[in-house]
Design a protein around this nucleic acid. Sequence first.
DNA 1: TAAATTATTATGTATGACATAATAAAAGTA
DNA 2: TACTTTTATTATGTCATACATAATAATTTA
Lengths: 236, 236
Amino acid sequence: MNNSLLKDELRLVDTSSLVDKVEATIVELLKNQKLKVGDSIPKEMELAETIGVSRTVIREALTRLKIMGLIESKKKKGAVITSPDLFGIIGKSMNPYILDEETLKQMFELRLVLEVGMADLIFQRITKKDIEELKQIVSHEPPATQHHLFNIDHEIAFHGKLYEITGNEALKKFQRMLLPIFDYVHHSGLLKKPASIKKFVSHNGLIDVIEHGSPEMFRNAMRNHLENHFARLFEQ
Amino acid sequence: MNNSLLKDELRLVDTSSLVDKVEATIVELLKNQKLKVGDSIPKEMELAETIGVSRTVIREALTRLKIMGLIESKKKKGAVITSPDLFGIIGKSMNPYILDEETLKQMFELRLVLEVGMADLIFQRITKKDIEELKQIVSHEPPATQHHLFNIDHEIAFHGKLYEITGNEALKKFQRMLLPIFDYVHHSGLLKKPASIKKFVSHNGLIDVIEHGSPEMFRNAMRNHLENHFARLFEQ
DNA sequence: TAAATTATTATGTATGACATAATAAAAGTA
DNA sequence: TACTTTTATTATGTCATACATAATAATTTA
């Protein structure tokens, strides 16, 4: 076996830096001790001595855990376990100018998938008050004739409310982060096919389905409502 | 105005730490210079001097950017801009033992939403080869009579393939991370209602719909296929 | 006993030093 | 000249130490 091959194999085994290892060690340590949310973890110096590395390395590892939302540090008190905010974590990266085109397109698709797929959650959890709010939102929309494909503010208000109805916080957060991405992709030259003016199922139509239809009907209605977006995705 | 009051007011305006500010400053700097993927960013010492803080702070800020996947650092070369791997970032947090119950349940729901909603992507991008592979996977499954609600390996193989067919890398990565969560929630006591033995649309049934049906039919078939999971979610 | 003061503690920030790996420059050899 | 080997150089990785800062605990004082 030649040297570069050996090197490759070794890389497979352990390409991680010291901080990587320490990070894993700490997570393992927390897991083994079955620490729950709110419990405080060992002090930086204790960890440094226990694991046998400098405080610098410990701090960098802890920084990572902080960013991932696993811990939160308070002066004097030390760091305490927290429940990670999964989509909050990727929030800072959700920047159209930072993400590459392929990822942007994938996020665009993801929104469509979510909205078509969340019918059952909506039907299961919607209340009369929610329906009233949806109607309220639509009533403030300008007539279809005088606007372009869509007015972004009203789109956000209506679709945002739908996410809210699902009662799934993760879903909601995800949508909020997807919004600027979606808007960017929609208006950028990323999708070659221009947005069609043709209108399909309207917001009012969707409300009607929610009130008198079924999840199945809603999925189809939403799919139709989003037809312009799907068409731009597929026809290029 | 006394000193402590002034201090309090300032805190309201800016509660962020130095590293927070430096992090934002660096991101802003990269954005303004319109740096693209592959470009290298200023050295740590340069940044430290430009921004006027110690290298420690710079390093901690850069650590965060690294974790978010915005940059990758190489010795001698410095750090280069990278396109963030959105779902890779939250991967480390996707740990059933760390996440709280509510989040776990939300992830469980999210999977169902995705699989029902991704019909159009599948139909748009599926190839004959994909269908053959799906059939191949199903052919290796044990007969329905002799297994429990589902065999986790075959479930993963089949549904994983569906994600793959969508051609959406983000979606796929997301699924891979959701898998252990889903498995955990499924088997934990988190969902009170026991998993039903009743079978609905089978994997073979789904393939049949893919071959001879429409996205609309597939959504309904998948919704039916996942009925056991939905039922456990909603009926407690 | 309760409020005010002081001490303690753990994280936050700064600095300097050396290790390490990747690259560039220089030297040596055919 | 071209090509390999060796030697600097450079920037990140790691370590150690010191002090700042804020939160808590301990102590004093009224």
